[in-house]
Computed example of a mutant assay.
Amino acid sequence: MVSVDEPEEDDEEDEVYEFAEEETEQESNPIPPTEDEVREHNLGTAENPRPIFLSALLGEEERAEYMRLLQEFSDVFAWSYAEMPGLDPEVAMHRQHIREDAKPVKQPQRKFHPAIMEKIEKEVQKLKDVGFIREEQHPD
């Protein structure tokens, strides 16, 4: 005998199946991201620029309110790695949990387009300069 208060198992399975079917349809027809035009604004000075980007679709009043808010709290944003000296290593440090008896294997260097490689090297050097990363030396 089936209680009136409890749905039958078949009903629950049907609901789960319908839900999964809806999710699959949404995944197969993703909505493309909007590509609103943005405008660059400077929260800093000419000597020390602090660029931000706001939608060009904002009205003048909204833009002014965002600028006021961002300027008020500009001290919480970092525009360079040097402005983040107080990061707790327990939160920000990557650790690899490797078995003690495992031998490190050097991977071949990945190839990038020369224009991109130059940007990568500059970014890595910035991280090294402020002590965010260091080059690890292996015995091999």
Rank of each mutant, 00 (worst) to 15 (best):
L69N: 05
E136H: 14
E47V: 01
E100I: 01
E37G: 00
N48Q: 13
D129G: 06
E62A: 05
V76D: 07
E61A: 03
L57C: 07
D10R: 14
I120V: 11
D101T: 05
R134A: 06
V38Y: 10
E8K: 12
S55C: 10
P104K: 02
L70H: 04
P7D: 11
N48S: 12
S28W: 15
D14E: 10
Y17K: 11
V124P: 07
D88W: 07
Q125M: 09
D88E: 11
P85D: 05
H113E: 12
G86Y: 06
E47N: 03
A92M: 11
V91N: 03
G131T: 07
L69I: 01
E100D: 06
D10C: 04
E65Q: 14
A56K: 09
A115W: 02
P30R: 05
E65P: 03
E136Y: 15
E6C: 12
V2L: 13
R95S: 02
E65G: 03
P108A: 12
E23F: 01
D14P: 00
M1C: 08
S80N: 08
E72L: 08
E118I: 06
G86N: 12
G86Q: 05
P85T: 09
R63G: 00
N48L: 10
F73Q: 03
N29K: 10
V16D: 08
E15D: 10
A20R: 13
K128I: 10
G59R: 08
E23R: 02
